[in-house]
Every structure is written in structure tokens, then in C-alpha cells.
């Protein structure tokens, strides 16, 4: 139990980078971008291939992320220059990437089990003393996590990306990107090239997604052609759960919420799969129910609060009228 929860938080921290990418396209640019299912694999597959062919893991990861950036830019170009509907542009790019990814990978699965990856590089310089120190908090547990290295380093990487994203969205360019998602007509009348901003924004979004894919592949030890299926829904689930639980008042708050949402999503899935009557094939159903719950619950809560408030006002009115009548 403890081990599987620990694993859930660990992979949640890696998937959070993907969720930040989805936040950028879906929320900031208001662009429902389905490229994600393909670009996640692009990052994983290209990085995997390069590592197998002897490239240093960090360079390979960056190349993988850049490939995702290019894929996203092409989706952006299809939408802005080709005037293709956003959803359709993403879907077209997604299926195109399926074939492209297979070309790059050469085979449906690329194994990195015997290669040097970022993950085992992190573990190799990590001091076991930190692990034993941290594991001492789980006094009485019969099994403790083998290493804290991945969790801590990945959390730092994810937070670093979050802070960079926060900063970027407050720069002059970042403001214009946000306005493009909010009111395109207005920002165009303020001399911003919205086409360019959409292309760059969707590119960055998919760059983050591909980076996450590259890290997930190295964490799991393999890249698979189908590992991206449903990724957009997981990203959306993270964004929506995060916003529902942690709020969305400021940019910094939302990006933190998205990371939290990604981790909570993993934890909930892990817990759900431990329930006896649920099978691992029910995963997609659980995801769908989770997203629906995260979308509907805040609305229900709010209308309840409103109703309560109105009832209280009515009661106060009645009381006042009663007092006036008796006076």
C-alpha cells in the first residue's frame, strides 16, 4: 500500500509536466489540442531511440522535448495558416504522429532497461544515507521505498518548470498569449500577431508534453507506441481536479493546482485499482468518472451555497416583516 502510493506520487510528479502542457493549451490558449496523445509518444520514442543509440540521456531528453515542440508548432500552423478547426488540427496531427513515431522508433516498443537513463543517473549520484534518513519517518512499515531520489529530483524539476511557466505567462509575450486565449480581437488590435502566438504556445505546450513522455519512458524503462492513448484526458483530469481542489485565483496558484491535480489523479487511480471488484481495464472508466465528478461537484456545491444564502435572506426578510407587523 505504502509502496504503491509512493510510486503514484512519484509518477504523478512526472506526469505533472504533461498536465502543465495541457493547461497551457487548454486553459491559457483556450485551444483543445489533441496533439498531446501523439506528442507524448514522440518525446518518449525519440528519446528512447537516441538513448539506445548511445546519446547522453539529458541531450536525448531535450531532443525529444524539442521534437514535441515542433509537432505542436505544426498543429498551430494547421490551425492558424490552414484555418483548420482546432480540434481537427489536433486530431490530424495526432494520427500523423502515430506513423511518424513508429518510423522513429522502428518497432512498437523500445526498451531502455540496460541503458543509462536520466533515472539511473539520478540514482547513481544519490546518497543512500538520505533515503535511510527519510525512510525513518515510516517507522513500523514493513516495506519502505527503495529510493527517494526520483521523487525529490522530479519534484524539483517539475516545480522549476512551474516557476518558469509562471514567469513566462507574466512577461509581455506571455500576457499576449493569455489574451489570445481570452480575447483575440482585442489583442490583435494591440498589435500582437495572434497566429504566431498560437503557434508558439501550442509548440511550448507539446514540448512540455514530450518532455514528460521522455521522462515517463525513462522512469518505466521503455517507450511504447501506444503509451500516449488517452493522455489528453489524463492531462485534462489533472487540470480540472487541481482547479476544483486548489482554486485558480492567480497563475501561480493554478499551475501549482495542476501539479497537485496530476499527483492526486495518480493516487486516486492507484487506490481505485486496489478495490477488489475493479480491474485494471476499468482504468479509463475510472478516469472518466473522476473528471465528471471534478467538473460537476463544484457546481453542485456552489448552487447549494447560493440556495442556502437565499434562504437565509428570505428568513431575515420574513423576520423583519413580522416585526414590522407586530409593531
Amino acid at each position: 500500500m505504502l509502496i504503491s502510493l509512493f510510486g503514484a506520487v512519484e509518477s504523478g510528479a512526472i506526469y505533472a509536466i504533461m498536465a502543465l502542457g495541457v493547461y497551457l493549451s487548454f486553459r491559457v490558449l483556450n485551444f483543445p489540442d489533441l496533439t498531446v496523445d501523439g506528442s507524448f509518444v514522440t518525446g518518449a520514442g525519440i528519446t528512447g531511440m537516441l538513448i539506445v543509440n548511445g546519446m547522453s540521456p539529458i541531450t536525448a531528453t531535450l531532443v525529444g522535448a524539442f521534437a514535441g515542440f515542433i509537432a505542436g508548432c505544426i498543429t498551430g500552423i494547421l490551425h492558424t495558416k490552414g484555418k483548420i478547426n482546432a480540434l481537427l488540427a489536433g486530431i490530424l496531427m495526432m494520427i500523423a504522429l502515430y506513423s511518424i513515431n513508429l518510423r522513429f522508433m522502428g518497432q512498437p516498443t523500445v526498451s531502455m532497461l540496460n541503458e543509462t537513463t536520466i533515472v539511473n543517473q539520478i540514482q547513481s549520484f544519490w546518497s543512500p544515507a538520505i533515503d535511510s534518513a527519510l525512510n525513518s519517518i515510516f517507522i513500523g512499515a514493513d516495506r519502505v521505498p527503495t529510493t527517494w531520489a526520483i521523487l525529490i529530483i522530479m519534484t524539483i524539476v517539475t516545480l522549476a518548470i512551474k516557476f518558469m511557466l509562471d514567469f513566462f505567462l507574466k512577461t509581455e509575450v506571455g500576457l499576449a498569449i493569455r489574451a489570445t486565449g481570452d480575447n483575440q480581437k482585442m489583442i490583435r488590435s494591440l498589435s500582437a500577431n495572434t497566429n504566431f502566438l498560437i503557434i508558439i504556445g501550442i509548440g511550448l505546450s507539446n514540448g512540455l508534453v514530450a518532455l514528460s513522455g521522455a521522462l515517463v519512458a525513462q522512469h518505466g524503462g521503455f517507450a511504447n507506441l501506444n503509451m500516449g492513448i488517452g493522455m489528453i484526458v489524463i492531462g485534462l483530469a489533472s487540470v480540472i481536479i487541481g482547479e476544483a481542489l486548489f482554486g485558480k485565483k492567480t497563475i501561480a496558484r493554478v499551475t501549482l493546482a495542476v501539479i497537485g491535480g496530476a499527483i492526486i489523479y495518480r493516487v486516486v487511480i492507484t487506490l481505485a485499482l486496489r478495490v477488489d471488484f475493479l480491474e485494471s481495464s476499468d482504468l479509463k472508466l475510472i478516469t472518466a468518472v473522476l473528471v465528471i465528478a471534478a467538473l460537476v461537484t463544484p457546481k453542485i456545491l456552489q448552487s447549494r451555497r447560493e440556495k442556502k444564502r437565499r434562504l437565509a435572506k428570505r428568513a431575515a426578510l420574513m423576520e423583519r416583516k413580522g416585526r414590522e407587523a407586530s409593531a
Binding site: 507574466k170 512577461t171 509581455e172 509575450v173 498589435s191
Partner: peptide, 10 residues
Amino acid sequence: SRDKKRRLVP
């Protein structure tokens, strides 16, 4: 920023 180039500064 209308009459200037948009940059990567706050």
C-alpha cells in the same frame, strides 16, 4: 506594448 516589440520581460 502596442508600439513596441514584445519581449520576455515582466
